[in-house]
Write a protein that binds this DNA or RNA. Sequence first.
DNA 1: AGCACGCCGACT
DNA 2: GTCGGCGTGCTC
Length: 724
Amino acid sequence: MQIVRVALDVPLPTLFDYTVDDAVVLGQRVIVPFRRSQLVGVVMECVMFSELAVEKIKPVVRILSDSEPISSKLLALLRFCSEYYHYPIGQTVIPALPARLRSDKPITVKHEYHYRLLDGAPPIDLIPQRKTAARNMVKMLALQPCNLQQLKTVALTASAQLKWLIEAGWVEAFEVNPLACLPRMHCFANAHKLTDEQQQVVDAVTQTSGYRCFLLHGITGSGKTEVYVHLINRVLQTGGQVLLLVPEINLTPQLEHYFLSRFPVATLVSLHSGLSENERLKHWQQAQSGAAGIVLGTRLSVFAELPKLSLIIVDEEHDASFKQQDGLRYSARDVAIFRAKQCGVPILLGSATPSFESYHNALNGRYEMLKLTGRALADANLPEIKFIHSKQTVMVDGISEVLLREIAHRITRGEQSLLFINRRGYAPVLMCTECGWLSDCKNCAGKMVLHTKDQRLRCHHCGYQIHVPTLCPECRHPELLPVGSGTQRVERVLIDRFPEARILRVDRDSTRNKRTWEAMRSKITANEVDIMVGTQMLAKGHDFPALTLVGILNPDSALYSSDFRAAEKLFSQLMQVSGRAGRADKPGEVLIQTEFPDHPMYRCLQQHDFEGWAASQLAEREMADFPPFAFQAMLRAEGLVEADVYAYLNMAKLAGVKLNHPVEIFGVVPASLARRANHVRAQLLIQANSRRVLQQFLRVWQPGLADLASNKLRCSLDIDPLEF
DNA sequence: AGCACGCCGACT
DNA sequence: GTCGGCGTGCTC
């Protein structure tokens, strides 16, 4: 009989000891009694003795052996995360698994159909010329057997053609185990010729052996994706696995389709929260068995099992969505770097506007800087960026006359325009012209946003909504004025001004279900839209070939935000949305409405000068002792009673000061949204000049924090926070 | 986090 | 007398 130490999904920093009679392997899932119920846990350690009194230790109920154990490498990665982010080990390990592995429901692997050419299949010429789809499919099947998904990348009507080919006796279906590592006869990409610059990047990465972190700084349109394709191709040829991390879920289906089409016969799986439990399990297991050569996923896929991992790519590495904002508050980019180090493989961080953290590391030599400076399509030029001084121009409901005229030109030329405004709704606040009443949310410190579509005032923080009042709730005055504009108002203005134009609004309200956004995208690509109005949803994603004008409406607020990263974020957002304008044959133009056209941020943006911008900002950050020159942790608390929240944080601060470590402990301050859903929120910032010092402090300070908090408070510790 | 145990106010 | 309020404490 031996003791196993098991990780359980409970908010306690420890493992739990159980006895087992049968042979048990590290990383295996077990059902154990816990309190009055049973839980699924993962065996983290096998030991001979326990520190606990014998009578307290219960036996394992059952060992689950219908799935492969978690590798000790992944367990080590999860242990590291638990320690680095100071989060309970069980709540780190268990939620990293697909939901099906967190339950005791039996796991079965269903076989799937693949298709292959029969011996008697006719040469390609015998298939009628007009049956292009069938011909493409036969060509692909001649390389190696494929599944339906792969065939669909060469033939839209794959299902129907397949039926025809099977009935003709040329193709047959056969069962395969999706977890089996099929021999990869052909995994080649439909590779395009690389520019010299791109080739140099590919060479630099492929010539590395062992761990190395590369920062690929490539302007929009410089062909980063083609570099990824070539690198992935190399890895697949040697039988390795690639992890490709991408920011958002709404980007994944297109990207998946794109990479499938580039690697028609490789096994690619996606991992993101949009998958069903069964799909997620299957994809995870395909990664675990090595059957999947490419794993494409959002931040959670950084915890996928990858036995043959040979390369990690983090695309849009600056994107804030790589940071999880609840539970284990990890940065998938940073975890990926640790993982690459652990596995001894290269990692490539790609971005047109790298985070200052990564850029700084590339400048000081911790990472290797790689650059793509030219647009891959030789004659494609960067868009011309111009400013409209919003205080010196005639404005129609927040849109300048100049911009409206330019939109009109695009309409007559059959080109598209995009108006970018980072606010949804009609107006961000409603005001009484008589007494100055503002549409405050009764539950939050924020304002309720006016939505004219359903005549409601809605709080974007807590979801509370009311009907738009006809009289001022304070003074009964009948005149209430919408202040500022959001996407709906801009859309309204455009409809009035261009009644014939086809206008499309793209924001979270207009794309309720995820199918809609897909439909909208194809409408835009088919040039069935003249003007798009939208939030940052429009900044990301694939190219819109007919788009030649981007208008940006009053983005200034980020320039005087209390968040020191706001300007960094705005710059990359504007760079990204600007990059949507213009193609090889049609130059793009960007018009920015601002009160501060001389602000250094806009100057650098106009010159497409990321280097200059980064240099000036890094200098400021260094002077002010901000990241990346300092390392931070944020303790947050929220609760119903203001005094409790502040008392807790002040006690925590006092406890920290007493430890007398070389860290700076700032004051307890209200969170940027001081009240949300009736909960008072405040925070305490800790800063040190090295990761090591910060971690040393947290190791002593953090364990006591839970005892200080009453159960009425919700607290969290955020390491390397992005939000303030 | 749950979910027990435990000690004080208004009810048949 | 008891039903139930939510404060404290433990989970291998």
